[in-house]
């Protein structure tokens, strides 16, 4: 058995049925001398939500940040291995990282709207990427993005208000609108609901369900039930290793690995 064979795979669907959007192979991450991820092999499929779960410090957020090279900005962080999006190596040195991060958008744990108006928050990306020729086109993108983020009806009459004046749930949807304004192919979400109340969480989860029709989504969550509700595939990480990956419906009813079972059942040892 090779190192990479250790992950238990409970994926029942024939691989050919689902197109892989992002493919990670033998990904190792180091923070200085400390290794945070060990030989991670993981496929994230087109128009599916892949949930990354595991206890604090297991490496799931580190892995998520590898996907759009957010780890590049962390001093002392070194990433080895290969990550491909549509067969293009994300770590190709000739790749424009800014363009990559437009293609792979990210939503963080705490809503982080820019200290600007609602309109300018969404328009920011299209402006810096030169996506529009005129105000009319920009208006169209802002409206479309806010609609897709399920926020338009709530803010259409106050687009010039500051984004930070919105509720937590609305701010998070504003951040999602900002991310999708630049036409990404993939959305990374790092505990996007952990600062939200149950109603705002339900709205975001419903939005994730709708967004996956257009985007491939990878979400880190500490909530087992959120992972079960929103994802089609689940990957369980423990101490930097990918322990088990499979259909979410299998992982939460009949996990194959005892560590997965213990974690999702809230058991000791």
């Amino acid at each position: 058995m090779t190192e990479t064979d250790k992950t238990v795979k409970t994926h029942k669907t024939p691989e050919a049925e689902d197109r892989v959007k992002i493919k990670a192979r033998r990904v190792n991450v180091f923070y200085g001398a400390a290794q945070a991820l060990f030989d991670i092999d993981l496929d994230m499929r087109l128009n599916q939500v892949t949930a990354l779960i595991g206890p604090s410090g297991c490496g799931k957020s580190t892995f998520l940040r590898c996907l759009n090279r957010m780890n590049d900005v962390i001093d002392g962080c070194r990433v080895e291995g290969d990550i491909y999006m549509d067969n293009q190596n994300v770590y190709d040195e000739t790749l424009d990282v800014v363009e990559l991060r437009a293609r792979i958008g990210m939503v963080f744990q705490k809503p982080n709207p820019f200290p600007k108006s609602i309109y300018d928050n969404v328009a920011y990306g299209p402006r810096i990427h030169g996506m529009t020729q005129n105000k009319e086109q920009l208006d169209h993108i802002v409206k479309k993005s806010l609609r897709r983020a399920g926020l338009w009806d709530e803010v259409k009459d106050r687009l010039s208000d500051t984004g930070s004046g919105l509720s937590g749930g609305q701010q998070q949807r504003l951040c999602i609108a900002r991310a999708i304004a630049v036409n990404p192919e993939v959305l990374l979400m790092d505990e996007p609901c952990s600062a939200l109340d149950p109603v705002a969480t339900a709205v975001i989860e419903n939005l994730i369900h709708e967004l996956r029709q257009r985007y491939t989504i990878v979400i880190v969550t500490h909530s087992m039930h959120q992972a079960a509700r929103v994802s089609q595939k689940t990957a369980y990480f423990h101490l930097g290793e990918l322990i088990e990956y499979g259909d979410t419906s299998d992982i939460f009813t009949r996990p194959q690995h005892e560590q997965t079972e213990a974690y999702i059942s809230g058991k000791i040892g």
Partner: peptide, 9 residues
């Protein structure tokens, strides 16, 4: 308790 996996079964 929202049981999962073996607990749910």
């Amino acid at each position: 308790r929202s049981p999962l996996a073996a607990d749910l079964r």
